[in-house]
């Protein structure tokens, strides 16, 4: 193992998403990871395209948007240092549901999904460990979407 990938393994292991992951599984994850950098304004994900990556944001700010004809780009959430960007890679048909773009210079760890999926198929225990870590993220996103949908601060009825 190169010193560089050892560093990466350490960094990944420290992230809450992978906390407590079996060391051999952590190696598998790190083997699919690389450092990436996005300039301010750069598109990261595009709705409808194949979802073949997810990101752990190490620095910067990312917006997740939906494009609506007539309304233009509507931001549904912003993501920051420590946040996970992208879960569509783990759910068929592996296509992005949203756009994402860097709002400022953003550094992230990118994980290649086909690499992770292949390793999951080879080692279902590894796949299960990944699913267990992403399911709460998906549930959390759903919960937040509900809360936004409820428009809890919405304009009150006029009596």
């Amino acid at each position: 193992m190169s010193p560089k990938s050892k560093d990466l393994t350490e960094v990944i292991g420290r992230h809450p998403l992978f906390a407590g992951l079996d060391p051999t599984h952590l190696e598998l994850v790190a083997g699919c990871a690389s450092n990436v950098r996005f300039a301010a304004g750069q598109q990261i994900l595009q709705e409808g395209k194949v979802a073949n990556t997810f990101y752990l944001i190490r620095y910067g700010r990312v917006s997740v948007d939906v494009y609506s004809p007539g309304r233009g780009r509507v931001t549904i959430q912003t993501l920051h240092k420590g946040d996970v960007l992208g879960w569509s890679w783990i759910v068929e048909p592996y296509r992005w549901h949203h756009d994402a773009r860097a709002l400022e210079l953003t550094r992230a760890l990118a994980f290649e999904a086909s690499c992770l999926r292949k390793k999951s198929d080879d080692d279902p225990a590894f796949g299960y460990a990944l699913i267990r870590r992403f399911a709460p993220l998906i549930a959390q996103r759903l919960e937040r979407a509900e809360l936004q949908l409820l428009d809890v601060y919405g304009h009150v009825a006029q009596v």
Binding site: R73, V74, T75, I76, Q77, T78, D151
Partner: peptide
């Protein structure tokens, strides 16, 4: 919860 492009703060 919702913002247009002229908002540079957090959304969520």
């Amino acid at each position: 919860d919702h913002a247009g492009l002229n908002w540079h703060g957090r959304v969520g």
